[in-house]
Write a protein that binds this DNA or RNA. Sequence first.
DNA 1: GCAGAGTGCTTAACCGGTAAAGGAGACGAC
DNA 2: GTCGTCTCCTTTACCGGTTAAGCACTCTGC
Lengths: 354, 354
Amino acid sequence: MATKAGAGRRVTINDIAEKAGVSKGAVSYALNGRPGLSKETRARILRIADELGWHPHRAARSLSAARADACGLVLARPARTLAIEAFFPEFLAGVEAELSSRSVALTLQLASDVDSEVAIYRRWWAERRVDGVLVVDLRVNDPRTEELQRLGLPAVIVGGPLEGGALPSVWHDERAAVVELVRYLAALGHVRVARVEGVPGFVHSSSRSKAFYDATRELELSGRVVSTDYTPESSARATRQLLSDPEPPTAIAYDSDVLAVTGLGVAQQMGFAVPGDVSIVAWDDSLLCQVVHPPLTTLSRDIPSYGSLACRQLLAAIDDHGTSSGDVEAPRAELTPRGSTGPAPGDARAARGA
Amino acid sequence: MATKAGAGRRVTINDIAEKAGVSKGAVSYALNGRPGLSKETRARILRIADELGWHPHRAARSLSAARADACGLVLARPARTLAIEAFFPEFLAGVEAELSSRSVALTLQLASDVDSEVAIYRRWWAERRVDGVLVVDLRVNDPRTEELQRLGLPAVIVGGPLEGGALPSVWHDERAAVVELVRYLAALGHVRVARVEGVPGFVHSSSRSKAFYDATRELELSGRVVSTDYTPESSARATRQLLSDPEPPTAIAYDSDVLAVTGLGVAQQMGFAVPGDVSIVAWDDSLLCQVVHPPLTTLSRDIPSYGSLACRQLLAAIDDHGTSSGDVEAPRAELTPRGSTGPAPGDARAARGA
DNA sequence: GCAGAGTGCTTAACCGGTAAAGGAGACGAC
DNA sequence: GTCGTCTCCTTTACCGGTTAAGCACTCTGC
């Protein structure tokens, strides 16, 4: 029968100690399940703590335990991206699910660029506001990894692994997914294929592009890559550019759901039938991909699980405090064929076979 | 020239005091800009603090200042909703923008239902993990408001105002927006109009429905309302139900972007031309509404600003500590006509005029 | 009958800040 | 000369926990 805490003074272990007629040290032992108390005293203290509705004061505990019981996540993309793309909210949902089960808080912040992101890490760690951070959107020669190591702030790289293996990471086999995609398009008879990538400075985007080049070369396809900044506008521009070519690609693979949906709209506006004239593939499934016409073929991943996995990895890194943890591979993206992909126009397969 | 903090021991005010040859009290005065120090000493202390790269330990400060420097937000909807609907990420982005400028953290948590949400508030407040919370998805007879008042936890109701005015709130004039919408549909000649609402237990959804009934009655239209649980599946069911009627509505207004987009798909699948046979309107604009064919007419709000506004309101409530703050009205949703709405089929206006 | 070990609790220091109270020294007034 | 006042800094207590060290008491063994 927990009494009403009301808006009055907080219940502290001193209150418990007084009521139980013991010292506050004894109360602390009881509440933390440490040995050195008789069964009866322990039970009495716990009962009183419950009656008074006691909860530990986070700051007080952090001060001695040197634990913030919070993990951090900084997003250094424009705020709009957060809202527009399926990846982040889904990833967040997965992270949250993992954290809330252990009463660890998630501290979220948006930053304008990588430099201010690093500044946030520095501040968070100096203030001991977080115990560790999840790092997303790894860049080529990323300044964050070096700084995180220097600070000694536990971190997990989402989308690694990192060269050198200095920080633990979670990752997908992007290469295998790209190979599956390119083989699929080749099997449909496509010869001129293109990829609309995200920001080339991002490791996940550039590694997919590299895999794309390799796979098209191996299968003797013509492969082009155009860059964007993940905004719908840049995707529209990229698509227009590709389809204005005298010999436009007959299949375009995009690096996100937003890019693909925008590209689809542009293609249709330009009079291209989808998938009659051009096939379209998205990366990461979402409602967006399913409601357009035709619905988009995608490379789907279980993003919430990815978030949970990253989170577990981070919590482990915090406990180990740096030792090992290593890299963990998540299930790779799987091709989900829908209406936006079909055979290459003009039976390219026959022409090529001749 | 801030020296490297490295992975070593934290810099504390004791380190600064020692290096400056003063007591830690003096350092505290200097760092907090309090009077009682000579100009030179103050400057020296600040310089050394900067050199050592000192940041206040959040927990230590919280312990005496009784401030967590964090705000809380609990979402008691299924995790999927977070990812699927435009509202939350956009709202979050607005909240974040406001908070990060004052180095207040946002603590986010997902809950399965209102009861566990209340439990989270109780815990957060007892642990002094947050200074205040934003409450979204206000329900009819919401148990949260009473509990928040009882606890004395500063809170802002998003989507109020609350009857009784006990807690400060931010709100839109939903009624005016609904009236504008219904007038617009009536002007297009629609007589049988329907509304697909969200969860009827939510205040914003039920108040819109009430306004919808009132507005249709006033304009002598036939108005129906069907409920959903905000999932695409429930919207598909609702739409199918409405359009299977012997006298189906010629215009359907949905309570979110997701509901509307799903409804559009179902309508087209059932052979209804949009907007030829049935007009469709969404609530809250998003990329989703713009990429479908036809693009959806929406009631658009500036959601990030709404988030920022709510956040400023909360910070004020925390400072005042309960006194006043009151309710603040945000700009109401504006109708953005696009291709999904058109004249009622069969020149309903003429028939009605006869 | 007393050393030694174990049990069960208390005391006190500490984490890193904030802030009230106190005190040394300079200076002016009478 | 000494009293009051002002400036500038130190001392100290405190926030709410954790934890090492200490200590009284009982039990055991010889």
